[in-house]
Amino acid sequence: MIPAARWSSTLLLSALLASAATAWGQRAPQPAPDLRVIRGGEYRPFYRLTGRERVTVRAFALDAWPVTNERFLAFVRANPAWQRARVRRLFADQDYLAHWAGDAELGTAARPSQPVTRVSWFAARAFCEAQGRRLPTEAEWEYVARASERSPDAPRDPATTARILAWYGRPNATLADVGASRPNYWGLHDLHALVWEWVEDFNSALVVTDSRDNQGPGVARFCGAASSGAADVGDYVAFMRYAFRQSLRGSYTVRNLGFRCAADIAPGE
């Protein structure tokens, strides 16, 4: 069910519903230009939560690209509380949007079509809420990240793995624009090898209480112990994603960490 109050425009709502309908082939396809509909399903997660062998993901919608500098600029112009000079330290650390020329100005170091980075989890969340959307959950993000270009479930596709690992072997150059890579099975671009992405529950699988406490199950996620409980010890790309998320706190900003937004959809509406 979509809580209607959260939608900023009925136009978006109808576009979203139309795109949702394509998943079941009942109505004429009219997808929102930047959203992709993801069929529900289930999979064996890389790290199991207690007592859960498989994770079920309900149908949802996800941005086709990471949020760009241009879109985030529009957001901070409309929401000055999220501008660099005004944001509260509790919600974003001192490097928040540090590569931008000004509070509401990109400058030469941040192209409009590059993914926005150096944004905190709080800021990413606020952006998505302003669009009537939300951050994807880790389960949702990992679900779509399993896709190759041709298959919805190919987490060990050798070509994909090699391409992503090669990304780590490259020097830290400037970020490419969004959409430069080929879309995966779901029509999603840049899930891998451009920026890391925030998820709603980025540390729930690994930390017991809150993100300031590092003594939960995450303590065991280092060195050889990290392989204990992993569904597939050969999935290095997944190891790196989980390790990266585990290193974060909500206020952190990182040079290569961005995000994209998700939306709920419900069949039958």
Binding site: D95, Y168, N172, N214, G218, F222, R249, N256, L257
Partner: peptide, 28 residues
């Protein structure tokens, strides 16, 4: 940095050799 990193020193007496205490995101 692209990745988070930490340090485990074998000279440390304590869980993880410092790994958990030093797990550090890029730019931190």
């Amino acid at each position: 940095s692209t990745m988070p990193h930490n340090i485990d020193l074998h000279a440390v007496t304590g869980p993880g050799g410092g790994a958990a205490s030093t797990f550090t995101a890029p730019g931190h």
